[in-house]
Design a protein around this nucleic acid. Structure first.
Length: 275
DNA sequence: AAATTGAGCAACCGCATTCCT
DNA sequence: GAGGAATGCGGTTGCTCAATT
């Protein structure tokens, strides 16, 4: 690994953290809070850069971290959220209390990705692998359309597909309900996210997807939804919750980050379904 | 028993964004 | 508004360890 430029300048330590270093950092932040990260190492008596201290705290020392393996519910939620949010690990992590973006990213790259591939699902597009070519052409059309913001009708909270023949087959089973009155992009009241779990262990039907392109879309979609071992319902309470930490794509704090790019993606993922 | 391979994880890097002067 | 510092994020690398040959 290369060394941070700041670490070169100050001859700072790098690599794995020793228990002593952990203790110093933990003690310091417990007593004083982290404040300005760049000053933490000096004040805590560590020969590390602030960036390294921040990462160590967030990924390992934070007291609210959940330890241990990911449950199937968590894994399922990650898949569903990834279908909507893509590689926005920090946003995904915000919806999984006690889990870090790094942890989720590692899990995705080392485990979930392979499981999806094994099931014949493209981990990037969340579609059957056989549809990749078609998907590429749709992606191209979508990126072209994103250059034309007037194609979106954001005012009423809905997303128009601008006349594209949206034969998108995969509907993430997270159901993102729109704001009640469809007049803003923020969330009020109680939102309901319905998560159903793909059956990781079952390979039945996988090959048939590849052999029967005609029926493939509908079949895959139904199977994706019906094969679930169970459904988990995640309730996201209120706008206040969103703005405090658990931000959903349309929440105020995230809205500018979401539109129109994310709406495009969401519209695509939902097969042109109006939100 | 030694060597090889692969999975899982921790940490770093570079870039983008935000904050501050 | 400009420029530098601080922070946050996603991609990537490299280490460890268990399983396999």
């Amino acid at each position: 690994m290369k060394r941070h430029s700041c670490c070169y300048k100050q001859k700072l330590r790098k690599g794995l953290w020793s228990p002593e270093e952990d203790e110093k950092l933990l003690n310091y932040i417990t007593k004083h809070g982290h404040g300005c990260w760049s000053s933490v190492p000096k004040l805590a008596g560590l020969e590390r850069c602030g960036k390294s201290c921040r990462l160590r705290w967030i990924n390992y020392l934070r007291p609210d971290l959940k330890r241990g393996a990911f449950s199937s519910e968590e894994q399922n939620l990650i898949v569903e959220l990834h279908a909507v949010l893509g590689n926005r690990w920090s946003q995904i992590a915000a919806r999984l209390p006690g889990r870090t973006d790094n942890e989720i990213k590692n899990l995705w790259n080392s485990c979930i990705k392979k499981k999806l591939m094994k099931k014949g699902i493209d981990p990037i597009t969340h579609k059957p692998l056989s549809e990749k070519e078609e998907s590429n052409s749709v992606s191209l059309r979508n990126s072209l359309s994103s250059m034309i913001p007037t194609q979106f009708n954001i005012d009423d909270g809905s997303v128009s597909n601008a006349g594209f023949d949206t034969q998108v087959c995969v509907k993430p089973s997270i159901i993102l309900l729109p704001p009640p009155n469809n007049t803003s992009s923020t969330v009020s009241g109680q939102d309901h996210v319905n998560v159903s779990e793909p059956n990781w262990e079952s390979n039945s039907g996988t090959t048939s997807h590849l052999n029967n392109p005609g029926m493939e879309e509908m079949k895959w979609s139904e199977e994706y939804l019906n094969e679930s071992l169970f459904s988990t319902q995640v309730y996201v309470k209120s706008e206040t919750d969103f703005n405090s930490n658990i931000a959903f794509p349309w929440s105020q704090s995230q809205a500018c980050d979401v539109f129109p790019k994310d709406l495009q993606r969401m519209a695509f993922s939902f097969g042109g379904q109006t939100l």
